[in-house]
């Protein structure tokens, strides 16, 4: 299910532009969407889910135009959506909540619903807690209920917005594995500001900055955008004023800084191999409106 986005603009009341003339094609498979808070990721996810209407531009999902009611309905019939702030009904049990969402997704046969809910509770390792009210669930458990509801109707398009925020490392790994296994011939759009999640799951990625496309290409391409711009510097003095400090580690009485900068941030700075996080910073921090490149 391919997503075609053309000249997409979304301006909220008060003139706040969340998306500004975005052009993007999302192919089948796992696709990562990176960007800082406020970059426009959530607005884009909501537009793709048919929740928010664009101010201008066109979006088609699997050939269905989201500008039409019929198009939105068709997309929502094959959509699984996990919002950034997952809200649940606290008085319902996990099983009741999933059953209710399944009903809203058009799964009218109670036996089919019951079976599917049971399968997904197993997948997200919540079978033992299925009868407990959601009120008592931890953040990670709620997130697992969230992914289960997104997968209910075996969607061809899965949109997950910041899914691993608030999860512990073990849950994050489990979640990423689950998404990768699910992707196959489906389209999974993973929106996040956690670079590691993209590195571990996606081959293709787009970076949004201030509502515009800052990068579109493979994860390796993005990593290479920082080639020749990543430096290691050991100093006992203050951190360098040039470039962006990626990490700072104590080192023999001083600090070892990892820095992304177009030129060496000091005479003692030595070049190092770039990582995906360096590539992300290279395309967003120095000039957030640099031309798009692959």
């Amino acid at each position: 299910m391919t997503i075609e986005i053309t000249a997409l603009t979304k301006t909220y009341r008060g003139g706040v532009a969340a998306l500004d003339g975005l052009d993007l094609t999302v192919p089948t498979g796992m696709f990562g969407l990176l960007g800082a808070n406020g970059a426009g990721k959530t607005t884009l996810m909501r537009i793709l889910a048919g929740i928010v209407r664009p101010t201008a531009g066109r979006v088609t999902v699997g050939g269905h135009d989201l500008a039409t009611g019929a198009g939105r309905h068709a997309v929502q019939q094959s959509l699984g959506y996990l919002p950034q702030d997952l809200g649940v009904y606290p008085d319902l049990t996990a099983r009741q909540f999933l059953d209710y969402v399944a009903l809203l997704k058009g799964m009218d046969d109670p036996a089919v619903r019951r079976r599917r809910v049971g399968e997904l509770l197993e997948v997200v390792a919540l079978t033992a807690q299925a009868g407990r009210r959601l009120r008592g669930f931890s953040g990670g458990m709620r997130q697992r209920v969230g992914i289960a509801q997104a997968l209910l109707a075996d969607p061809q398009l899965l949109i997950v917005d910041e899914p691993t925020a608030g999860l512990d490392p073990e849950e994050r790994i489990r979640f990423r594995t689950l998404l990768s296994q699910f992707a196959g011939d489906r389209t999974v759009v993973l929106s996040t500001h956690i670079v590691e999640d993209i590195a571990q799951t996606c081959r293709e990625v787009a970076v949004l900055a201030q509502g515009r496309l800052a990068f579109r290409g493979t994860v390796d391409d993005l990593t290479q955008r920082a080639a020749g711009q990543v430096w290691s510097l050991v100093t006992s003095g203050p951190p360098p004023s040039e470039g962006t400090v990626v990490s700072a580690l104590p080192h023999e009485g001083g600090m070892r800084y990892r820095i992304v900068a177009p030129t060496a941030p000091g005479a003692e700075a030595t070049p190092v191999d770039p990582g995906l996080e360096d590539g992300y910073l290279a395309v967003t921090v120095p000039d957030e409106r640099r031309p798009v490149g692959r």
Binding site: I51, H73, D85
Partner: peptide, 13 residues
């Protein structure tokens, strides 16, 4: 006050 409003808006119903 619907805590699951975003899920509600993304389903076919």
């Amino acid at each position: 006050r619907d805590p699951a409003v975003e899920i509600q808006l993304a389903v076919p119903t």
